[in-house]
Design a binder for these strands. Sequence first.
DNA 1: CTCCTGGACTTAAAGGTTTTCGGAAACGTA
DNA 2: TACGTTTCCGAAAACCTTTAAGTCCAGGAG
Lengths: 337, 337
Amino acid sequence: MAGKRATINDVASLAGVSIATASKALNGRQDVRAATRERVLAAAAELSFQPNALARGLLSGQTKTVGLLTSDSVGRFGIPVLLGAEDAFGAGEMAVLLCDARGDAIREQHHLRALLSRRVDGLIVVGESTNPRPSVSKDLPVPVVYAYGPSEDPSDVSFVPDDVGAAAMAVNHLLALGRRRIAHITGPAHYKAARDREEGVRRALAEAGVEQAGATLSGVWSQRWGRHAAEMVLMAEPEIDAVFCGSDQIAAGFVEGARERGRRVPDDIAVVGYDNWEVLSTETRPALTTVDMNLEVLGRTAAQHLFAAIDGRATPGVHTLPCQLVIRDSTSPPGVS
Amino acid sequence: MAGKRATINDVASLAGVSIATASKALNGRQDVRAATRERVLAAAAELSFQPNALARGLLSGQTKTVGLLTSDSVGRFGIPVLLGAEDAFGAGEMAVLLCDARGDAIREQHHLRALLSRRVDGLIVVGESTNPRPSVSKDLPVPVVYAYGPSEDPSDVSFVPDDVGAAAMAVNHLLALGRRRIAHITGPAHYKAARDREEGVRRALAEAGVEQAGATLSGVWSQRWGRHAAEMVLMAEPEIDAVFCGSDQIAAGFVEGARERGRRVPDDIAVVGYDNWEVLSTETRPALTTVDMNLEVLGRTAAQHLFAAIDGRATPGVHTLPCQLVIRDSTSPPGVS
DNA sequence: CTCCTGGACTTAAAGGTTTTCGGAAACGTA
DNA sequence: TACGTTTCCGAAAACCTTTAAGTCCAGGAG
């Protein structure tokens, strides 16, 4: 730990100029002779001067810092959003102040105050699900964008993955493979994600004039439920030839359960998952065809629109971003795997 | 977005006192009459006054903010450390500025400068592995602690999990179950984690006077390698009755591979994993006995010691923190599962 | 020679808060 | 009344940077 940090004052003294001139030289402004600028720059390097962002922020009212408020323990959804945001913030002028409310409204309020008192320029709120969540933006002095979990208030700026479209895309993929007896296994119905994905399935099947094989099975987002659902669906609809699962965990469980009951994936039953959670989707056997929600793109987009909002060009509304189908072995046409 | 934010000046005017008095009242200091304090507090509430942390930090030299610099894409290790740190920072006076260097030294340097110019009070550096990493603390004006990946410089403050002890603990558990033909499958040897865990295995077996079943198999940290290793080890050492794997991914793969070759887990072969990565350890069947490195505790401890260092009470050296064996079905005694 | 122009630099204010020190009023004592 | 003490409050400095406005000087035009 070195001694006290150099201020622009020290730099100015060392260079033999006033602090105003030093400032101008350091910030590349006009009105300073080349030789003088050189002297100042040399002095700054000599003292390894770092401008004090606090003082600068106090004056300009811009801290070049945004808050990222998440509720999902920074896990599945917070991270990609964070990375995307960091990307969007470019060569890194922006910094991210990260807070995890852990699903607790009190804690969220607390963090919110802390962020505001630190004068963040804007806020990204990451939901733990795609269920709309109470708006936090009322009377806030900074712009806010919501990622993954949209705000209940339609005048806020929200970005969500297109679950409906993605599910339809997944089902269309199965239809294109010639599968016609398609089942759907998903998570709890109180998740909008589950309902949206089911809606996508319904639409794609209706458009193709194909009946769904059995009713949608709602359970939880776990591998265990996937295994259990495999038993149920194979009992009720023995001749299914494809399953679309609401998550990779469910899909992984289903594959296991189906295999135990003598069905081969993908030959007998093609399986599509959701999330593209690599540890499951690429490591299981067969590797899972699955939906990637492009969360990093979503995060980057959210960050870009936050910038726009900071600049006064807000884009209110719930914006739906496309997902992507990642095709792997669990839906290989027969004979290819 | 509301109008301009209230300053202490506004509060003072509204309360009819000077800003000095307002400050004292708001900060609960003496020298202010109860009635006056009340008036100030009321005025502050009325204006929903939030003190400007920049101004405060500028004056006090303390920003109540720490930087968390990670290299592992904030994934496996960064998150628990972040959570632990947030916990340690208590009711949340402290905020965390998060930067991800993504394994790039240039980017790390860049983030480091950004953090310093924002005048963080301290720094937590999270490694992507337990391999010692170059120190970043040389001539830094703030204290630094290293979590998970220690600094190469022994005068820095580092916290690492006790891989050697944990591996010994795992093997002792297997020995206590009466298993005597124990194999070890792990990740790349250029990971200190792999070497340490192997050393723990060696020690525990030596102490018990038991030979290791075959040489340690080094591969990668993946499920695929676990499956492959299962084939190899069952070929070379058909009568093994236990395996200690260097990660849950390897363990999950091993279980799969062993099952395909007709071995039952845990009856024929007991399996212990490492990491307690819940998506694998609790969701696979059987649920995995595994080592939990207590990363959240590690993060909390690192944060607490960072505080100590900020207060001038640094604790140099590499501190080893104990891990914990989480016992699940993959090592149930025969007849119990 | 005077006046003006423009370049190079400095002075000073501003931003919001905390803190030190001094001042004023009220009260008790001689 | 004069004086010391206590209690409460206010003025002003300090933290560091940016920027608008001002100063000074050289050189060119009239």
